Amino acid sequence: MTNVLHLINYLGGGGSEIYIYTLAKKLHNNHCKFYIAYSEEGKGLKLFEDLGIETIKLQMNSPFDIKAANELKKICKELSIDVIHTHFLRENYISILSKLLGNKVRVINTRHMLDKNSKSVISMNKFFTRFNDSIIAVSSSVRNQMIYDEGLNPNKIKLIYTGVDLEEWSKPSSLNFRDEYKIPEGEILITTIARFSKEKGHEFLINSIKYFKDYIKTNNPEFKFKFVLVGEGELFNDIIDKAKDLQIYDDIIFTGYRRDIKNILKSSDIFILPSNNEAFGLSILEAMAAGLPVITTNSGGTREIINKDFDNGIIIEYGEIHKLSESLVALIENKELKEQYIANGYKTLSTHFNIEKTIEETYNLYKGRDI
């Protein structure tokens, strides 16, 4: 049994936590024993407690927190940790510091972000990643950025796509989301699941909803629709205020944080991810697994999922308000096109984003294979 400590500063409910959760569901108590060490408690804590994973509070005040590095070394010794799997810069630096202080573990980092780093951060990354045993890139876009923009060692970087468990998604799900919000079956639900932060493109989406509503009012006034925006974040209230200013607030359901993503997606008709910057796009995979056609933006890792070769959805440029509205109309009016994207989306998942492949490749890194 390989003991793996996942180190994450904030244990919220975003994509990084879902990434860890996906690994844990397959590997915890099956080849591996997982532990979670965190600095700030968030809504994601319960996810791991429900899986029976031991969680440990470890205060991490900065990337160069020597006290945290020493405490991490102590935790690893007490739990006989073989691998520390880090998920952001702070946690990775602290893990490397603990290694330099004598912590005899493998340190693996997953790069979840596509943000451009400053010159000083790039320089520090070049130094610290020398001591990483391997680095997982969640998409080719992320891998290319690390190699060509930051000059990191390509031999240490392994592209591992995050997959979805199609068997799990095929199981029956509660479909009471429409009942909860009193939405009749004939009303089209158009859903977005994303943290309310600048890179996720909510302002673009809100402007597009306004344009779409005006188009429908003019061309098909009998048509009924609702947009569902799932998530929370620093821009949550700002987006609500903008929706009110544009007089589209009543056309949108702002759910806040939800754990019943499967329920929401399977109750929906169309999925949109309008990001300005996206390292990968796990929510796209989940939407396709739920049997939804997808509209997304050409914003990084998304084009590795939705593209013309796969013929599995619609990809537009960020900010194309008219194009997003036209794409929605196309999916609503052309049932054959919608079904084509749904079928090809499922094929894409089974062929390219299979969870078993993700698990096998990640486990190989834990064991020091295929580096």
Rank of each mutant, 00 (worst) to 15 (best):
Y215C: 00
Y215I: 03
I248C: 12
K242W: 06
D251R: 09
F225G: 06
Y249V: 08
G233T: 04
P221H: 03
F227T: 12
Y249Q: 13
F223K: 07
I239H: 06
L229Y: 09
F236D: 01
F225E: 13
L246D: 14
L229F: 10
G231L: 05
K226Y: 07
V228H: 03
Y249E: 15
D241N: 15
E222Y: 02
I239A: 06
A243H: 12
K244S: 14
N219P: 00
G233W: 00
K244T: 07
D251C: 12
F236M: 08
K217I: 06
G233V: 02
E234I: 14
I252G: 10
V228M: 06
N219H: 12
D251A: 09
D250M: 07
T218G: 00
F225H: 09
E234H: 11
L229G: 01
K224S: 13
I240Q: 15
L229K: 10
K217F: 07
F225A: 13
L235T: 07
I216R: 00
N219E: 08
K226E: 03
K244G: 09
D251Q: 12
D245Y: 14
I252E: 03
K226Q: 04
L235A: 04
G231K: 00
P221T: 11
Y249P: 10
D238H: 13
K242Q: 15
D251H: 09
F223N: 00
T218S: 00
G233P: 02
I252A: 09
V228F: 09
K242P: 13
G231D: 03
F236P: 07
I248H: 08
F227V: 06
Y249A: 15
F223M: 12
N237F: 13
Y249T: 08
I216H: 01
V230K: 02
Y215L: 10
F236E: 06
G233K: 02
I216K: 01
Y215M: 09
K224N: 07
I216P: 00
I253C: 07
Q247F: 08
A243P: 12
L235N: 10
D214S: 05
I253W: 06
E222L: 11
L246W: 03
P221Y: 02
I216N: 00
K217D: 11
